[in-house]
Amino acid sequence: MKDQITSLISFYVNKEVFAFDTLKVRNILEFGKITWVPNTKDYILGVMNLHGNIFPVADLRVMMATEHIENTADTSIIVVSSDGKNDSLIGIVVDGVKEVFDIDGLEINESVYHGNSGFVNSFLGTIHKNEEFVHIIDLDETVMEIEN
């Protein structure tokens, strides 16, 4: 799985750096108006509309049990689809998007991240880049958690 990844999009959650496979990312939106949906899990903030598609928005910060949550101008919504279908679109709220980079030559190590990560427990690996550890989140596992 991780061998197929060629580039990553990295972002901050509570000052830690995490990343998704770029291929799964559809769009990056500003944190805007989200329509609240009743009777959902607390990390589901509601639904948004992107080009006529309605998709739910999950707050990764809540999912990872971050203690201090504050929306700033940097707060973004990364719209992903784990299987490429419109039906599987989901927006992920993060503290800020950092960069997109190619994996070329960088070594993906076994992830040793065991932070208090709440619902996010599966990682594809960790990259050491510019004195920082970038943890690659297993998106498929994470959305499965949301679906159940």
Partner: peptide
């Protein structure tokens, strides 16, 4: 419009409209 696969279990809401 459908709410997508993640909110399928939602009992009271059958969809959304823009």
């Amino acid at each position: 419009k459908p709410l997508g696969r993640f909110l399928k279990k939602q009992e009271n809401i059958s969809g959304a409209t823009i």
